[in-house]
């Protein structure tokens, strides 16, 4: 596929609020099929600059009507679809900022400036995922690891599973193992977190015995 045939990015929502270390994107329930926990997303800004993030939480708020509906005996398909597709029930995705790109050059540092309200949020495709996670030496892991109040193990397990599959598809079968090794090194002085991360990785990945 040449440059002209490049696939259109998969838009999964718009930015609601942001900061340097993370941001929150919103989408409608009908767009919820694509984003997943641990997925790499990007917010393309201007002139070759884009911010990358990992989804660490997907949140759906209730409202009075939904609470009322759950008290009924059964909910018909039409009512369910009305609530999911027609009512304004935004899905909020919380994202940890893990790096940025300027003119094709990837950095695993925090970005110079965050994305702005209503900036488009795209789900990274396999090429982008491989490009971002293969750049440098897993420097972006530290942005996840310093958030001790998040389920770090689950987020990393989901992310490594997705990125590992993308790398394997491109012929790099070692990426997953290298990522696990890097995590062991980064967490060598934090035994409880290391065990929690390894336990999640063990559940997610087909580790060689």
């Amino acid at each position: 596929m040449n440059e002209g045939e490049k696939m259109k990015p998969l838009q999964i929502g718009y930015l609601l609020r942001s900061g340097t270390t993370g941001f929150v994107a919103g989408c409608s329930v009908s767009q919820l099929a694509s984003p997943a926990l641990g997925a790499l997303i990007s917010a393309p800004l201007s002139s070759g600059y884009q911010v990358y993030g990992l989804i660490h939480d997907i949140h759906i708020d209730d409202d009075g009507l939904v609470r009322q509906l759950v008290t009924a005996d059964n909910i018909s398909q039409e009512v369910m679809r009305d609530n999911r597709e027609r009512r304004i029930v935004p899905v909020e995705m919380s994202v940890l900022t893990v790096g940025w790109e300027q003119d094709g050059r990837i950095s695993h540092l925090l970005p110079p400036r965050p994305p702005l309200s209503l900036d488009v949020i795209n789900l990274c495709d396999e090429d982008e995922l491989v490009k971002f996670t293969g750049a440098g030496s897993f420097g972006y892991f530290r942005h996840v690891l310093r958030n001790k109040d998040l389920p770090i193990g689950e987020i990393l397990a989901a992310h490594i599973q997705q990125a590992g599959a993308a790398h394997a598809h491109k012929g790099n079968l070692l990426w997953q193992e290298q990522a696990a090794q890097e995590l062991i090194i980064l967490l060598r002085d934090d035994y409880p977190t290391l065990m929690s991360v390894l336990s999640a990785l063990g559940d997610a990945l087909p580790l060689d015995k």
Binding site: E78, R81, R86
Partner: peptide, 12 residues
């Protein structure tokens, strides 16, 4: 306004 076709499974 809203249009519902009960039992159709269609989105209103």
């Amino acid at each position: 306004a809203i249009v519902i076709e009960p039992g159709s499974g269609k989105t209103p």
